[in-house]
Simulated scan of single mutants.
Amino acid sequence: MVVHNGKAVGAAYWIPNGDRLEAVDTTADGYGVAAYLGTSPVREASTYGHDSPYTAKKGGDLPEGHTYTFWACYGGNSGQVCSDVHKVKA
């Protein structure tokens, strides 16, 4: 869940079955949500530039059992605030 000023504004997910990122923006507040996966190049699913509610999905086959970093950000043109980085497996 992505929280801003104590309110849930969206979510970011890593879905290992399908090697997919999802970023969900649930609030029409002028900001977006992005989910990132530490691949090379970094994989991004972003709601930036879309009207809310909106879900962005980004997938693609990755090697099974490999560990990646995953994080989420919330923001807009003035910058982003990002979560801690978590480890996930494909």
Rank of each mutant, 00 (worst) to 15 (best):
M1L: 09
M1T: 14
V2Q: 01
K7R: 14
A8V: 08
A8H: 07
V9R: 01
G10N: 04
A11R: 04
A12D: 02
W14P: 01
I15T: 15
N17L: 11
N17R: 11
N17K: 13
G18V: 09
G18I: 10
D19R: 03
L21G: 04
L21T: 03
E22P: 01
E22Q: 15
E22M: 08
A23L: 05
A23H: 04
D25L: 05
T26H: 05
T26C: 06
T26E: 15
T27S: 13
A28T: 07
A28K: 13
A28I: 04
D29M: 06
G30K: 00
Y31G: 00
Y31L: 00
Y31N: 01
G32D: 03
V33M: 06
A34M: 12
Y36K: 04
Y36E: 02
Y36Q: 03
L37Y: 09
T39L: 07
S40A: 10
S40Q: 13
P41N: 11
V42A: 12
E44F: 01
A45H: 10
S46E: 02
S46D: 04
T47G: 02
T47H: 05
Y48P: 00
H50Y: 15
H50K: 12
P53D: 12
P53A: 10
Y54K: 08
A56T: 06
A56N: 05
A56M: 13
K57V: 06
K57F: 14
K58A: 14
G59Y: 12
G59L: 07
G60V: 07
G60P: 11
D61N: 10
D61A: 14
D61P: 05
L62K: 08
P63N: 10
P63T: 07
P63F: 11
E64Q: 13
G65E: 14
T67W: 14
T69F: 13
T69G: 14
F70Y: 12
W71P: 07
C73W: 00
C73N: 02
Y74K: 01
Q80H: 02
V81R: 01
D84C: 02
V88L: 09
A90I: 06
A90F: 12
